[in-house]
Computed example of a mutant assay.
Amino acid sequence: MNSLDIGKKLDIVLKKDKSVFDFVSQLSNENELIFFGGAIRDLYMSSEIVVPRDFDIVLNSSIDIDEVESYFYRSGYAYRKNRFDGFKVEIGKTEVDLWYLDNTWAFKNNKVELSVENLTSTVYLNLDGIAYNYNGGRLYNTVFEKAEKNKEIDIVLQENPQEKLNLLRALVFKEKYNYSLSENLIKRYLHFYEKDSKLAEELNNLQIDHYGQAKMLKNNIDDELQTMCL
């Protein structure tokens, strides 16, 4: 699938809810918008067009954050600050996480050289390494394509403030897509399992906090860990 295909599918999705489409259109008039991660991955992998429940959008912009917040306030959007020093905006039933490119953790902490092209190299899991430049109509998917080609979930950038959450997400993806886990990834499970006998319980609690529900049965998490670590 190429940039044009993703752009067309994204436009179809956005236009299913006029308020979401208007929000994105208005924001893109003065900011470069990079759609990042799960929503673009799902559009890429699915033959059907399913409306995501949320979007991650990275702003590549020189406009001050106070001006962006003022726009939300004037437009009557419900919003709050998120963990990226950006905003979580509620538009009807859709939630949008927005943050500035240079506030991406790996850029902010000088782990990866700052650029739009390098955004997909800031992720922990290769399945998250996909982004679409809404203004420029360009798809960045080199990292993701490797995962899809090999049917293997691997680590892109190990240094991450939410490593255990990403280890939980890797198990969810393994079950969802029937992909294997790389040797590097298995070593990280071993690292934490040797330190914490209650790792399965911790990962189960993380999924409830992150997803608001259980994506995997706790017994399945425990079985996966025991298969890898015992």
Results as ranks from 00 to 15, higher is better:
42 D>H: 06
42 D>M: 06
42 D>Y: 01
42 D>L: 03
43 L>Y: 08
44 Y>A: 00
44 Y>D: 03
45 M>Y: 00
45 M>C: 06
46 S>Q: 09
47 S>G: 13
47 S>H: 06
47 S>I: 02
48 E>K: 12
49 I>A: 01
51 V>C: 03
51 V>Y: 13
52 P>Y: 07
53 R>I: 07
53 R>Y: 09
53 R>G: 14
54 D>H: 06
54 D>S: 12
54 D>A: 10
55 F>N: 07
55 F>G: 04
56 D>S: 06
56 D>E: 09
57 I>A: 03
57 I>F: 00
58 V>C: 11
58 V>L: 04
59 L>A: 02
59 L>N: 02
60 N>E: 11
61 S>A: 06
61 S>L: 04
62 S>Y: 07
62 S>A: 12
63 I>H: 07
63 I>Q: 11
64 D>R: 12
64 D>Y: 07
65 I>D: 09
65 I>L: 14
65 I>Y: 02
66 D>Y: 11
66 D>Q: 12
67 E>C: 05
67 E>N: 11
67 E>Y: 10
68 V>I: 13
68 V>Q: 05
68 V>E: 02
69 E>A: 12
70 S>F: 15
71 Y>H: 02
72 F>D: 11
72 F>E: 10
72 F>H: 12
73 Y>L: 10
73 Y>W: 09
73 Y>N: 08
73 Y>Q: 09
74 R>E: 15
74 R>G: 03
75 S>E: 15
76 G>P: 04
76 G>K: 04
76 G>H: 03
77 Y>L: 08
78 A>G: 05
78 A>W: 04
78 A>S: 15
79 Y>G: 03
80 R>D: 03
80 R>A: 07
81 K>T: 12
81 K>Q: 13
81 K>N: 13
83 R>V: 13
83 R>T: 14
83 R>S: 15
83 R>Q: 14
84 F>T: 06
84 F>S: 13
84 F>I: 11
84 F>K: 10
84 F>M: 15
85 D>V: 00
85 D>R: 13
86 G>Q: 07
87 F>W: 10
87 F>N: 01
87 F>G: 01
88 K>M: 11
88 K>I: 01
88 K>S: 13
88 K>T: 14
89 V>A: 02
89 V>S: 06
89 V>P: 04
90 E>M: 08
91 I>V: 15
91 I>M: 05
91 I>C: 07
91 I>H: 09
92 G>H: 09
92 G>T: 08
92 G>R: 04
93 K>G: 05
93 K>P: 05
94 T>C: 10
94 T>M: 02
94 T>Y: 00
94 T>P: 01
